[in-house]
Design a protein around this nucleic acid. Structure first.
Length: 330
DNA sequence: ATACGGGCATGTGTGCATTT
DNA sequence: AAATGCACACATGCCCGTAT
């Protein structure tokens, strides 16, 4: 796994947006700045000293990657804020701010890390990067209970999607059973058509991309948004198939089912739902499972802090706990 | 080719001194 | 006392030489 943090904004954001990883890194690095308001701040001078590069070099990155760095916590203090900051500076440390300073750029730990991911030449930064990757993998692994394979299940809405989805699944298989004149392979064939339509992979491809064994259930690894989309397809198609079956009064031929499917699939109402499912699936699998779905490469976005909390946070109770909790329902 | 370092010029907000 | 002007330190932009 040779990730190039300096080349991929998505990779950088996937780390920086993960508050659990950033906290662990901060602890490990032990680079203490000035505690100000609610977080540690570092002056440009301090950051340059840490990475052992010229202050001018840091400033250049601050300019060249201004948007990214400002979003991640670079700001210029002036006026009252600066006054307060000067008062917060521990006189023992060598932060050394000139009393005459009226504008001072400061970075929080996130922005400091961000710089480290960008700087090409600093040996210190290079070491930091490998440390960061190890910690991130460690954090995701630990939080996800050893493997990211079932990280999809650490989501409040997962269980309900799975549970509700089973009813729609049954609608669909019942419709195939009663209304379609075709061998038993009709089930996998039309299920795969649904998968293809939603995320461009059939079950086998999905299985191999996620390295699932034969025994592992594909749907157990899917995110709730994807499961919901599949449910919408299944119940919708079941309805169309039954309707057609009633209107012509005999079992449908495969070709007729295909026609229903094509008609169903090309409804523009699906577009936002499918775009969302693809985006969630591609982005999360990239961020959490380090898996790229080639057909969905364009849908990969950085994960935001909410996503990390949703899947790694304390709220994301273990599946076992929740199965216990929902035992009556099942 | 690319990025770093350094020089130089310009912009900006604040404190201080001077003027009105 | 308020307004004005000045000095200062850092931020920022531009340019060029150098190292790899």
């Amino acid at each position: 796994m040779a990730k190039q943090l300096s080349n991929s904004e998505i990779d950088r954001r996937n780390i920086l947006n993960n508050p659990y990883a950033v906290k662990a890194i901060q602890k490990e690095v032990g680079f203490v700045g000035t505690y100000f308001i609610d977080e540690y701040k570092f002056t440009v001078r301090q950051v340059a000293d840490f990475y052992e590069v010229d202050q001018r070099t840091i400033e250049r990155y601050l300019v060249n990657y201004a948007d990214e760095l400002k979003e991640n916590g670079y700001e210029i203090l002036t006026g009252q804020h600066l006054k307060d900051f000067k008062n917060s500076v521990d006189t023992d440390t060598n932060v050394g701010i000139n009393p005459k300073t009226v504008r001072l750029g400061v970075l929080n730990f996130k922005a400091f890390l961000n710089i480290g991911m960008l700087i090409a030449e600093s040996e210190k930064a290079r070491l930091l990067r490998s440390l960061v990757l190890n910690i991130v993998l460690d954090v995701v692994g630990k939080k996800a209970g050893g493997t990211a394979k079932y990280i999809n299940q650490r989501d409040d809405t997962y269980l309900i999607s799975l549970y509700v989805g089973e009813n729609y699944r049954k609608d669909f298989t019942d419709a195939l059973k009663e209304c379609v004149d075709m061998g038993n392979f009709k089930y996998p064939v039309y299920t795969n058509k649904i998968y293809k339509s939603i995320f461009k992979e059939h079950a086998g491809e999905y299985r191999s991309i996620l390295s699932l064994t034969k025994k592992e259930n594909v749907r157990n690894t899917m995110y709730s948004e994807v499961l919901t989309t599949i449910s919408m397809y299944e119940t919708g198609l079941a309805n169309e198939i039954k309707k057609k079956y009633k209107s012509i009064g005999r079992k449908l031929k495969p070709k007729e089912v295909d026609e229903i499917f094509e008609e169903f699939e090309k409804n523009p109402a699906w577009v936002p739902q499918i775009e969302m499912a693809r985006m969630k699936m591609a982005s999360r699998d990239y961020g959490f499972r380090e898996v790229l779905h080639p057909e969905l490469a364009n849908y990969v976005n950085p994960l935001n802090t909410d996503e990390f909390e949703r899947f790694l946070g304390d709220k994301s109770a273990e599946l076992a706990d929740r199965i216990e909790q929902y035992k009556d329902v099942f």
